[in-house]
Design a protein around this nucleic acid. Structure first.
Lengths: 250, 250
DNA sequence: TCGAATTTGTGCGTATGTATC
DNA sequence: GGATACATACGCACAAATTCG
């Protein structure tokens, strides 16, 4: 019966969650079965089931039919540094950022011309249907896929120049700022809009995740004198990485 | 009984979902009630309930007790600006950022002294068990909860000063940088680490979500001369907001 | 190899509390 | 107040997967 404050299934879920986060139920161990939960907490089958479902929705545990409900492993997310700003070397709080900030690993890409969709056109401040160069990237770090990226550049900017294809020529793979500089486009600003959502099936396939995993999505746009010259969607598995920004104050 | 392929509740949920996305059940309309679903699809009460729960977990509908289950509007995620950097006024690409960057709405908070956990101690570069001032915030924008925040400040920094309690005194609610300036602590750097995960049940209760919804989590730390003076966890519902960073290049 | 026990996942019927209309 | 509808809760049943003797 409802006697106290919150629903019984949340109380049970909360207690189990506490045991998981404080380590008394470490990864790979089995939760008490539904029957055991029923006994231990003095609740019904439905409440025990609902409590497990809460923890499953939170990604803390996974149910294996016929076997049990197991505590998931939660790797410490690594950092991906996103800021051009660098602190004075030797400043103690930033050791790790320096350590893992520049290890970029390997990547693959392929480019194709395309027409700007409505969404891309809006981000690049061009008209839908205008020609753009669309490039897809897969970034790997120590063999593990860590990041997907799709970028769009208006052909009005790079068309008929040596840097039209981001990964070809002497400046291949050099980054947007350097490539644009080569054609006298001075990139001076970048915006990154960070969001998150459940990963799509194809994304999780590429990233090595399982359905239901969360991804962080960054919509990045480079500007030159207030005009967008490149925009990209960056997709990162949220269980393995965090995105670090380092900003000066004022 | 299960005769075909997938569970009954998924079949019902799938049919209702189709009607929602193709527009035959537009936003703000009411779903068939549990009883009606039971009749129309020839299923039990439990199946009808479970089907509604699936749609609620996907954020497509919201249940209002005593009234009905309503199709949600799917808002374009709004921006929350996180950068101190401001572009020269009038620069066209940044109109919206200027427009909604500073509308902070209302908030509530309460503070209590506590001992630093291992995780907090690491972030503040102090010892676990050291005294900290812990403050919880709930931010609202037009009545809707948009953000939860929990901050920790070492009492070694603010103890026995007028700004020990973030929300009291003449500088209450003024922000970390201003408050610290009042006690001659010059905040010069901030790091923000953005991650994402399924929201916890309590968080989603406060944010008006449903178990399984994704939240963006920002771990923010302010530094003064390389020393951490405040750290906070900011929790934002990912379906309604994005976090915008605006960075100078170079 | 077989079978029994366990466990999850799904499904059913019902009852009660409570919010809304 | 009454009717409606959602939210929580109880107890039960069965299929499928797994485990283990």
């Amino acid at each position: 019966m409802t006697f106290g404050e919150q629903p019984a299934y949340l109380r049970v879920a909360g207690d189990l969650r506490k045991k998981i986060v404080d380590g008394s139920l470490p990864p790979h161990t089995r939760l008490p079965s539904q029957a055991r939960i029923r006994e231990e907490y003095g609740v019904s089958d439905t409440v025990a089931l609902e409590a497990r479902k809460v923890l499953m929705a939170e990604g803390l545990v996974e149910g294996r039919s016929g076997s049990g409900t197991y505590v998931r492993e939660r790797p410490v997310p690594r950092r991906i540094a996103r800021s051009g700003f660098r602190p004075p070397s030797g400043a103690t709080p930033f050791r790790q950022e320096q350590a893992d900030g520049e290890a970029r690993g390997t990547w693959e890409s392929n480019s194709a011309q395309a027409e700007a969709s409505v969404a891309v056109a809006e981000r690049l401040d061009i008209r839908p249907g205008d020609r753009v160069m669309c490039t897809r990237y897969v970034f790997r770090d120590a063999g593990e896929t860590m990041m997907l990226s799709t970028s769009w550049e208006p052909l009005a900017v790079t068309g008929r120049t040596p840097v039209m294809l981001p990964e070809e020529g002497p400046l291949g793979g050099m980054g947007v700022v350097e490539r644009m500089a080569a054609i006298d486009v001075v990139v001076d600003n970048v915006t990154e809009e960070v969001g998150a959502r459940p990963g799509l099936a194809e994304e999780l396939l590429a990233l090595g995740g399982v359905p239901g995993h969360v991804v962080v999505v960054i919509q990045r746009t480079y500007y030159a004198s207030g005009r967008p010259v490149e925009t990209a969607d960056v997709v990162i598995p949220a269980d393995r990485y965090r995105v670090a920004y380092h900003l000066p104050v004022k």
